[in-house]
Nucleic acid binder design. Structure first.
Lengths: 226, 226
DNA sequence: CGTGTTATTGACTTCATTCAAATTAGGTGG
DNA sequence: CCACCTAATTTGAATGAAGTCAATAACACG
């Protein structure tokens, strides 16, 4: 368990993003994927597609989402540079993935559960870590969706994105208000109003081109994060 | 769509629930855990506890939940017989777990990511599968929390529980309305009203002791599931 | 510069919550 | 077996937070 503690404590940072490029020289036969360049809103895979590949974001952002029959959409996550997506248990993707803006991803041939459990390389470990990270995010996000108010949702979202990007005093939103709304379980109007309220309360600042948010009072944001 | 839900139910079945008991005879040294008998509401672990163990439910039901500082609670999942819980990346549990009613669980000493990635036994495979199943459930649940109406939430919940239990025409709810509410992001009153509405619409029947629900019109429930 | 898209703001509505009360279930001791 | 008691659930009425509909406003791009 000690070993687990050590490697689990700082898992994201211990696995550099460019890691996989180096697998060429690694002993285990990690499949080195091919790079795919994506335009805004370009689809990577759709819900129900065969899970032939999974992906890692090189640059830009990718959203994964599910739809109800009448078109209501839930974006379960935004994937930034270094994040993996499309790892599935079954043989079909359970959500669709599209580029939020121009983006680059690497695709890897799908592993079997056997590969994962028996492969002893860095690659398998990285995939397991990615899966667990997704699970943790999903659990936090359920708390947000089920129990937080609109303003709290937006505050949490901004804080989270600020931590994941490496910019410090501000966040650059790669996604539209509509994407944010569908991620937070709100409407675009409510997202907009929440941002306005946070700005009124001097917690954030929203410069002219509305895709940058300046974090003025992190403590206040953290308080809203409860 | 439906097929997706159906296939989600299927893969778990390939790993029999009693699996671990048989690890005694398996070649890899899977840690055979000790059984713990739990009373109603008894805590298995708390948010922030060291992740020394993880667990598998033998009988009864277990809830895992997260709290906000002011007491708002989100139950991210109910774990029934055969389900695993408490598998974490870090060295601390990110949610707490309590028995919903009288229950039995087996505890296993925590694996390290290395164990998981390098172990080639059924045990490692089962843990990976359990993790992926959790992730799938979480993703479906985010769609529910973010985008479904109260009645849709309750309908989805009943259908899901009916599939996971093996009873066919009815569901026995091991948990209180309060637990259901905190799982669906609602209040107990709204859960109750939703059940009443479904009963008015002849979709379900709620016998005297209100912990059993008779599913009268599965098609209607599935429609609400979108 | 227009033009189409994206975002903000306002007025009104609605669904779920809150607060409060009534009802029912289930356990305990007589 | 019954009366009582406590906790759980249901129901009702009023409120409120977020949604809907509709109208600007501000960009981004050719």
């Amino acid at each position: 368990m000690h070993a687990a503690v050590a490697s689990a404590g700082a898992p994201p940072k211990t696995l550099p993003f460019g890691d996989l490029q180096r697998d060429r020289s690694a002993p285990d036969a990690a499949p080195l994927g091919s790079v795919r360049v994506l335009a805004k809103d370009e689809e990577i895979f759709a819900e129900g597609d065969r899970t032939a590949f999974f992906y890692k974001v090189i640059s830009g952002a990718v959203r994964t989402s599910k739809l109800l029959s009448d078109g209501r959409r839930q974006i379960d996550a935004f994937h930034l540079a270094g994040d993996m997506l499309g790892i599935e248990a079954g043989d079909e993707h359970r959500f669709s993935a599209e580029a939020v803006g121009p983006a680059k991803v690497v695709s890897y041939r799908r592993w079997s559960p056997e590969t994962l459990a028996s492969g002893n390389g860095t690659f398998a470990r990285e995939v397991v870590q990615a899966m667990m990270r997704s699970l943790e995010r999903a659990q936090n996000h359920m708390l947000l969706l089920g129990r937080k108010s609109a303003v709290e949702k937006v505050a949490t979202f901004l804080l989270d994105l600020a931590e994941r990007s490496f910019a410090d005093g501000h966040v650059d939103l790669p996604m539209s208000r509509s994407d944010i709304a569908d991620h937070l379980g709100l409407t675009i109007e409510t997202v907009s109003r929440s941002l306005t309220q946070l700005e009124r309360d001097r917690v954030i600042e929203v410069p002219a081109h509305r895709r940058t948010i300046v974090l003025r009072d992190r403590a206040a944001l953290r308080r809203l994060n409860s």
